[in-house]
Design a binder for these strands. Structure first.
Lengths: 201, 201
DNA sequence: CGTTCTAATGACCAATCGGATACTAAAAAA
DNA sequence: TTTTTTAGTATCCGATTGGTCATTAGAACG
C-alpha cells in the first residue's frame, strides 16, 4: 500500500521512446537537439541550455555527457562525409549527379544539415569547425581525384565546393533571392551547367 | 603642493593623434575599429568592449555614440555598395572586370572588408545583417540588368553572387585550400572562365 | 575669471554564459 | 534485502555580456 505502483513505462510518449532512465536515449536526444540548434542558430549563438531544453533535459546533463560545448559540437556534427557522395561514375554525367545529390541531401535534412552548422561555425571563427571543414574538403577531393580528368584538379574541386557553399549560404542560410525561391528541380537544372563549366574545362 | 601637475597631453601617443576631446575623431575611430572587429570575429563574437579597446576609448562611449551594438553594426557596415562595381562596359569583358574588381577590393581591405563582416553576421543569424544583404543584392542586380543579355538574369546574377560568396568564404574566412593559396593574379585567371560560364549561357 | 555644455569616463546593473559540484534517485550488483 | 553505481537534477560559481547612469573634466563663451 505504501508504494502505489510508480508510473511505469511512460504511457504518453511514443512506445519505446525515452523519458525514464536511459543514458543512450538521452545522449541521442541531446545529439539530435544539438544538430538542429547548431544548424539553426550557429555555434556562437547556440547555448548549452538551448540544446538541453530541446532535448528535454537539464543543461547539466548535456555537459555531463559531452564535457564541453566544443566537444558537443564535434560529436554532433561529425562527418559531413563529404557533401557530394555518389561521385563515382561517368564523368560526363558527374555534374548532374553532384547537383542531384546535393539538392536531395539538403532537402531531406530540412535545413538542419551538418554542413549548414559547419558553415555557421566556421563563419563565427570556431577553430574546431575549421578542422572538420578541412577534413571534409580533403575527403571530397580524393573522391574526385579518380573521376575527373584534366589539370588543376584541386582548384576545380575547390571552386565547386566554393560554389555550392555560396549556394547553400544563399538558399539555406540567407534564405532570400532567386536561389532560395527555386524549387528543387529548378535548382538542379540551374546548377548543372555551371558545375559542368567549372569541373570540365 | 596639493595638486602636482596632473599628466598633461599624453606623451606616448602619436603626435596630433586624437586623445583629447574630439567627438568626430572618436566616432570615426570607433567606426573603423568596429569594421575591423566585425570582419575579423563576426557579429556574435565581437563585443562592444572589443571595439572600444581597439578605438582606445571606453565601452560606455561606444554606446553613447551608437546606442546599441546592432546600430553600431549598421553604422559600421553600411553600403558594401555592391561587391562588384565597375560593371558598366562591354559584356564580353565583363567577367574579367568582375574578377579583377573583386580581387582588388578584397586585397585592399586586407580581410576586413565589410562584405566579410556581413557574411559572418548573416551566418550568425543577425536580422539586421540580412536586411543589408538583401539591399546589396538588389543593388547589384540592377547594375547588371542593363549590361547582361539573355534570359534568367536574376538567377545568373544570384549564382555569380553565390559563387563569389563561396570564394570569399574559402579564401578570406576559412583561409585554407587552393583558393586561399592562390596569388591574386592566379585567382583572377581562375575566376574568369567560371564567371563567364555562369553569366553568359 | 566663472558658467555652461557635453565628450568621455568608470562604476554599476541584470541577464546570461559555460562549467563544477553536491545531491537525488533509479537501476544493477551483492 | 542491502550496497554500490551512476543517470539526472538542482544549484552555485566566476566571468562576461549589452546597456544605464552619475560623475568628471575639457572646451567654448560670457
Amino acid at each position: 500500500m505504501d508504494t502505489p505502483p510508480p508510473p511505469r513505462a511512460d504511457p504518453d510518449a511514443a512506445p519505446a521512446k525515452k523519458r525514464r532512465r536511459d543514458p543512450e536515449a538521452s545522449r541521442a536526444a541531446i545529439l539530435e537537439a544539438a544538430r538542429a540548434a547548431f544548424a539553426e542558430r550557429g555555434y556562437a549563438k547556440t547555448t548549452v541550455r538551448d540544446v538541453a531544453r530541446r532535448a528535454g533535459v537539464t543543461h547539466g546533463l548535456v555537459l555531463r555527457h559531452f564535457t564541453s560545448k566544443e566537444q558537443l559540437f564535434l560529436a554532433a556534427v561529425p562527418s559531413p562525409r563529404t557533401l557530394m557522395a555518389e561521385v563515382a561514375g561517368d564523368p560526363k554525367t558527374l555534374p548532374v549527379r553532384i547537383a542531384r545529390s546535393y539538392v536531395r541531401r539538403m532537402a531531406e535534412s530540412g535545413g538542419s544539415d551538418p554542413f549548414v552548422a559547419m558553415l555557421r561555425a566556421v563563419a563565427s571563427e570556431e577553430e574546431s569547425a575549421k578542422r572538420l571543414f578541412t577534413a571534409m574538403q580533403q575527403d571530397s577531393l580524393e573522391m574526385y581525384r579518380e573521376v575527373i580528368p584534366g589539370p588543376e584538379l584541386e582548384e576545380r574541386v575547390a571552386s565547386v565546393g566554393a560554389y555550392l557553399t555560396g549556394v547553400t549560404f544563399s538558399r539555406y542560410i540567407f534564405g532570400h533571392g532567386p536561389l532560395a525561391e527555386m524549387s528543387d528541380e529548378q535548382l538542379v537544372r540551374h546548377l548543372v551547367p555551371n558545375l559542368r563549366g567549372i569541373l570540365l574545362a
